[in-house]
Amino acid sequence: MDQDTDLKLAIYRHTAETTRPPSAEEMASATGRDSHEIREGYQRLFANRVLVLEGDGETIRMAPPFSGVETQHRVQVAGKQYFANCAWDALAIPAALHSDGEIRSRCEQTLEPLQLLVRGGRVLGDECVVHYAVPAALWWDDIVYT
């Protein structure tokens, strides 16, 4: 396994375990590499559209489907609460964790709460749809807006 794949897996395992993406220092400690090396790895993963970094170039804003900041999309899986980046990612967290889950979000027009349940590989709950405002070719022009 190459070093970036190893780092990516360590990031995702940390996030799945703790609900938040790790700092460079946490990954340095987990992988036995120095934090400068980890920051360079973060930059390569960002360039490859695996991570989204904050402006400081080293804080993980998104390790899709997980969010590094609080959002309106809260996902409960196995007693842990995660934040998702968008509607797609809200459903993707139980999918990535291969687990049942509960999603609490909202209708963006009415701000009415929405609750969805993932149970046994199926999704149930409030009637809703997902609107895609940005064409696929432009998603990464501004991935936070997308």
């Binding site: 209708c107 963006e108 027009q109 409030d126 809703c128 749809v129 997902v130 609107h131």
Partner: peptide, 11 residues
């Protein structure tokens, strides 16, 4: 990618 209760709400 946002949730809406209906297409009318999207519109």
């Amino acid at each position: 990618m946002l949730f809406f209760r209906s297409e009318e709400n999207v519109e």
